[in-house]
């Protein structure tokens, strides 16, 4: 539960896009999918521990099974991102989004 989920080595290829869960931190505008895991481990140094990050994400509605869609990206480094979680719009940085694994819809 506490280890970060591994990234698929070839997550760019079309087949694996749909099947392997990817980090929300790497998602692009327009990507949609379903949250499969919220860990609290973003892979970056955080001011709060993983448990706390996990709980904050959960409280904002990032919970397993929630539908997700990336609505907007910032100008610099495409960061932060605005996502729709079920029917709530939330803005967050890519680093924290890294703690959310999403199974994206195939295209």
């Amino acid at each position: 539960m506490s280890e970060a989920f591994a990234l698929s080595p070839d997550f760019n290829s079309a087949e694996s896009r749909a099947e392997v869960p990817r980090s929300l931190g790497l998602a692009r505008r327009g990507d949609r999918g379903v949250i499969v895991k919220v860990t609290g481990v973003s892979g970056a140094a955080e001011a709060i521990d993983a448990q706390e990050l996990e709980r904050r994400l959960l409280e904002m509605g990032f919970v397993e099974g929630a539908r997700i869609e990336v609505l907007h990206e910032g100008l610099f480094g495409r960061d932060p991102i605005a996502v729709r979680v079920d029917d709530t719009r939330v803005a967050l940085r890519r680093r924290e989004a890294g703690a959310v694994a999403v199974k994206f819809d195939g295209r």
């Binding site: 140094a45 955080e46 990050l53 904050r56 719009r89 939330v90 803005a91 967050l92 924290e96």
Partner: peptide, 12 residues
């Protein structure tokens, strides 16, 4: 130095 506080905000 170091850790950055998460930015998470509802867009009403």
């Amino acid at each position: 130095r170091g850790a950055v506080e998460p930015f998470m905000m509802e867009l009403p």
